[in-house]
């Protein structure tokens, strides 16, 4: 089995594609460098990131697959799927070898898997449009901690900037130790600790309490269906929601 070891970034991926075309080798797997234990049966090829090669691949992808193909490949890299790199690699490889937009080849294995992988990322983003819970701090900044399956923080920030207009907020991914920090107009992604010390505003507890009471009151007890609830709001998300944590 041939394994490509690359840097987990768009440049890293495109450098690997350049290498694959240049050397005429297709990998059976693509993994992030340093994230894999070597064994003796597989053949490992470590690929260095080279900006210039990456740029040439990107140009070709845009030329054949259009801007959307390039964008979707970036989205795919945000996926928490362990094979995300290989999935993105295969799709990009197909685009380059077919020399056209392959996004409609939904019956093709590589395209189909790619399609459902980015769909998962978008679906989780949409889920967290709803499931993010802000706490108001004493300084007026809204703070939300969460732990998504995919790396969606940078996809969430623009939504909340539009919506909260001028209110500064922080969305903190405690699993990846990173945070989207916004001043109400723009946002930046920053590395963080996995905990934050918060100084909450005076009313925060009271509003949270009202919300918990509302949540209880709006349930129709005669129609209990926790299986449905579990499907729509998986338990792994709940420790960040005031209405479900104890």
């Amino acid at each position: 089995m041939t394994v490509f070891l690359i840097e987990k970034s768009i440049d890293g991926l495109y450098s690997a594609l350049f290498y694959a075309f240049e050397q005429k080798t297709m990998p059976d797997a693509v993994f992030e460098r340093g994230n894999i234990c070597n064994n003796f049966t597989d053949k490992y090829i470590e690929i260095m990131t080279e900006k210039e090669k990456s740029r040439r691949v990107l140009t070709a992808i845009k030329k054949y697959g259009g801007k959307s193909a390039a964008l979707y490949i970036e989205i795919c890299l945000l996926s928490g799927d362990e094979n995300a790199l290989k999935i993105a690699f295969d799709f990009a490889y197909l685009t380059l070898s077919e020399r056209r937009d392959v996004s409609g080849f939904l019956a093709n294995r590589a395209v189909s898997i790619f399609y459902y992988t980015i769909k998962k990322v978008f679906n989780e983003r949409h889920r967290f449009f709803g499931l993010i819970r802000f706490k108001e701090t004493a300084s007026g900044v809204l703070y939300a901690a969460y732990s998504p399956d995919n790396d969606i923080t940078e996809l969430l920030c623009p939504h909340f900037i539009k919506r909260l207009s001028c209110v500064p907020f922080i969305i903190h991914d405690v699993k990846r130790n990173k945070a989207g920090v916004s001043n109400g107009k723009e946002y930046k992604i920053m590395e963080t600790e996995n905990k934050a010390a918060l100084n909450l505003s005076e009313d925060e507890k009271a509003w949270e309490n009202l919300w918990k009471n509302y949540y209880k009151a709006v349930t129709i007890k005669e129609r209990k269906n926790t299986r449905q609830q579990d499907n729509l709001m998986p338990r792994r998300y709940r420790k960040f929601l005031p209405e479900t944590y104890e």
Partner: peptide, 25 residues
């Protein structure tokens, strides 16, 4: 959203929570 004001609507709609009866809030 109007600049400086709060809120906007999302065409697809957004569910914010789910109660024990499986309905969304």
């Amino acid at each position: 959203n109007k600049y400086g004001e709060i809120g906007n609507a999302c065409f697809a709609g957004i569910c914010h929570s789910y109660t024990q009866d499986g309905r969304c809030i």
